[in-house]
Simulated assay, not measured.
Amino acid sequence: MLRSLRRKILTPDIAETRLEKRGFRVKDAISKELLETIGETFLSGFAYAVEARRPGEAEERLEQVPARFRGFAYEGAGMGFAILDCLTFGDLRRTREFLGGRGLHHNYMIYVGIGWAMARLPRFLWPSDARLDPLLLWLVHDGYGFHQAYFHTRRYVHEQAHETRFRWPAGQDRYAARAVDQGVGRALWFVGGTDVDRVTSLIESFPEPRRADLYSGTGLAATYAGGATEAELLELRERAGRYAPQLAQGSIFAAEARIRAGLLAPHTEQAVQVLCGTTAQHAAEVSHETRPSAPAAGGAPAYETRPSAAADGAPAYEVWRQRIADRFHSFGGVTP
């Protein structure tokens, strides 16, 4: 009964995921159902986590979620375990146990879920970054940015609020703002209801220096969540213009996340073909080939990289993203 009460108290109202409630664009009935199912599945995963005695119990329920939506359930569970850990000063104990089990195959989504938790918690309860992978911790910012754009759309999308003082981890405010924008860009796919004209118009309304990260997030969402036809994806690629490599980079991250979890779906394969000019499997291989082995001291990448990235003081995660983008021509096509 106590765990059931905990679930009831902590789980957000499912009505909050309805497009009309959020004021998001409704392109058609199919895309509306898709986006709302994603929201419902996320909340189901959250509820499984906060009601579970231990992560393994939640995993059994998460594995029953249909493959197309299972990653979103793991993302919600990541938020749930992080919320419990932070509220009980658990030092991410449950979350790290979750990442050590079946969650290992969904680690990207779970890290994003931690960012959702941080968006809901006062800063004094935020977890220490020392407990997280120094390469992947930027996905936490992605999750935070998605949450803010999804639930505080007026401020973060229409008024274009910019998290320039996101002091986590310490001393990384400059890149943290960019990583948050990647999450905002992912949320724009939902805010725009998968309507390419609406989504790209929103991106183009932002200051030019922010658009590369926004397009990266949009490419990830269009590929992982889906909701666009081949013709619409072609339009998205054309509208991205000079940011097509960043769009492709986000698409590649999505392909790797789905393949890593064994959840590759036809809509992901199609999106990668259009946005990247290659197969999802090859896209995942590109991600693996360019991934740093480990960050060096001070967050620098553990391999030689583009001078522009090094001079900018970018963390290894950003260098990874740049290397992927560099493998693609302006309209897709992977380079040898």
Rank of each mutant, 00 (worst) to 15 (best):
Q281F: 06
I259M: 01
G250D: 06
A225I: 04
L275C: 09
E289T: 01
A261V: 04
E238I: 01
Q281W: 08
A284Y: 02
E230T: 04
L263N: 05
Q249H: 13
A228T: 15
T218S: 14
A228I: 06
R260N: 11
G241I: 01
G298K: 00
A284V: 02
S287L: 12
T218M: 13
T278N: 10
T279P: 00
L214D: 05
A240L: 05
Q270C: 00
E230W: 03
G227Q: 04
A244C: 07
R239V: 03
T290I: 06
S216M: 15
Q249M: 15
V274L: 10
T229P: 09
T218Y: 10
G298Q: 03
E289M: 03
R291D: 12
A231V: 09
S251H: 06
S216I: 11
Q270A: 08
G226V: 05
A225F: 03
Q246L: 08
L234V: 10
Q246S: 13
E285V: 10
S251V: 12
V286Y: 03
A265I: 07
V286H: 01
A294S: 11
A283N: 00
E289P: 00
L236Y: 09
G299L: 07
A261C: 07
Q270L: 14
T268I: 10
Y243G: 05
A261F: 02
L264I: 02
A222C: 07
G299N: 08
